[in-house]
Design a binder for these strands. Structure first.
Lengths: 196, 196, 196, 196
DNA sequence: AATGAATGAGTTTTCATTCAT
DNA sequence: GATGAATGAAAACTCATTCAT
């Protein structure tokens, strides 16, 4: 009797190996052989589970998106006020698991890759729309709809900017500083509106 | 007819073809044949002028960096106050030539690629350091050194964030909105400090 | 419940799956996995019963030859005159079981494959020799030995030709028309000889 | 300046190598490497000229069909009576170039392969329809339309049957015997009709 | 006996690079 | 300088076969 659940475990470990391989070599230089070796399996097995390189990469991206969505949802579940919800969204974007160098690197690679890959693009735009709507909704507690929409866009830009700079930085990633940077943006915008 | 300048022209047109090819297919799918075809020359000629694909890509990235540097320098030359210089730096980052979709896409590709390519990384970090130092220096006219450094980092993050989002957006690029977003960040930060 | 006969049944069902798989995908595209799936068993089992793909294919071809031989022998057993025996041979070649599209397709595939596979070739040439000798012997009742040998060769050619055309035709296979075509050839040849 | 006309020559030599390789190893065992070696070029070049293995095989089949069509057309051009035209069609099917062992083997392989390959099937059915119509038309000079159609089908079957048997025979191919066999069929049928 | 996970050898395919013309 | 034919190394992919369970 073959090991039940082996498939899920293998898929997980191959996706993890893919993330690490992208971190090490960059998206455009990753090979199936490299991923297989990292996962400690034969090259053939990767095809057995994912069918093709493209499908493995797509599955990896979906996995990263799901993890990110989960992190944000968990934070939101604990938040009670709009302000707390904004913080939850920001912190969710820099959740511990998401903010490991390898994950950041892979994220960024997929993010950029999605420009030319239709299916990736679709996945990302769903996530982006949800983020924008979520932020806008909670910012409306502090400012009019138009301004809220604008600040939401600024917050999303800041998150992406902090992220990309972390991906490229040599220094150890710093969650707290990343979160503080975005929070500062939001806080200042809210304060600026109150002051008017 | 003298052939002087022919070489420079060929190199320029090949670099331009490279930028367009990256825009169309993404960094990891670009081939030499594609670039040659786009430039209307034979595959062999690309090697004749650049030696290798890596060198062509490196030259393309250097070109983009130079253009960006030039745009910023030109703006700075016309600016007279610290506040104007900050605006010049921001606007330089979204100069017309820089903000065509193909250039944005290529920029982003190199930006991300630089994570795993040492020579690219070096080029970028020089530029990044100059940007940070420039912004910090001018922000010190409005706030203490530590705060200025922090806001400079925020400004750079915001620039990167706006940029990456433009690269992925379907909508026509909008220089003015991009500039306004970053200017708003800076303005709000300066105002927030004044208010304290 | 005794498992006696289980093995024979499994082998039969795997051979049948092989015939169908060849019909569907063509000889050169058939895979073990496909055959196993069709037979509703695991890939490993096919090897357990047949040892290798080559052996499975060889067994399938032997099976087809045996069935054909049996069909002809049964017809011959009921025939009483030379003319009836000729008809029995022809009809045996288009016996109901032999003339299903999948069987025709598999037959043809093996037939052609035998050109480069020594073991297949041997099997076929035994059958071909028996067919030629059988036809010749019975035709000698109507014409001299040399002429009979010649007509036997023509009959065999006509049988093969009708068969290959059925394999490629889209239309539903038509036993009666196939038989009539070959019978007509034989009849006309016999008549032509008588007329001389 | 590169050699003009090199491409046509290369394509011809690769198609010829493909025919020979199929003859040697059989359709299902032919590899690109084998073909390339036979043609004395690198494996990459085959892809350069044909794009893929499938396309090379398709081009080879088209070539064989064209050659056959040309042989028949040339014969028909010299024929003056219906009877001569029938002979021309038959002889064209066994023209010298067509009747080399390697060509016969490749023909047969494609013929059978076409059962599962839609594009091949289309090519063949066009040829088959033209053959049937051509034969029927000329046979009508000797018998009523229905009978002519029937004898045309028999002639085509006989041609195919003789061909497949030649492909599998060890003995040196014998054009004259092949032609005589089909001619005999036609002649006997015409005579049989007259006698009625 | 039976499974199907896993392997690895073999094949197609891609593409940067070279080179004769 | 310029071409594009040709190469060959590296990559993806396929699949018969093995083997632990």
């Amino acid at each position: 009797m073959p090991k039940v659940g082996m498939e899920a475990e293998r898929r997980r470990s191959l996706i993890s190996a893919t993330v690490d391989a992208i971190h090490e070599s960059g998206y455009s230089d990753v090979t199936m052989a490299q991923i297989a070796k990292r996962a400690g399996v034969s090259g053939g097995l990767v095809h057995h589970y994912f069918g093709s390189k493209d499908q493995l990469l797509a599955a990896t991206m979906r996995h990263l998106l799901n993890e990110l969505g989960r992190a944000i949802r968990e934070g939101l579940a604990r938040a009670e006020t709009p302000r707390e919800r904004i913080t939850a969204i920001i912190e969710g974007n820099f959740a511990v698991d998401q903010f490991r160098p390898a994950v950041i690197a892979a994220w960024l690679a997929f993010y950029v890759q999605s420009r030319t890959t239709e299916s990736n693009k679709r996945l990302l735009s769903i996530y982006a729309a949800r983020l924008a709507s979520n932020l806008t909704h909670n910012l409306k507690a502090f400012m009019p709809r138009d301004k809220a929409r604008h600040v939401a866009e600024g917050t999303a830009s800041m998150i992406d900017g902090v992220w990309i700079r972390q991906a490229l930085s040599d220094t150890h990633t710093d969650r707290q500083a990343a979160i503080a940077m975005v929070e500062d943006y939001v806080e200042t915008q809210i304060a600026a509106h109150k002051a008017q």
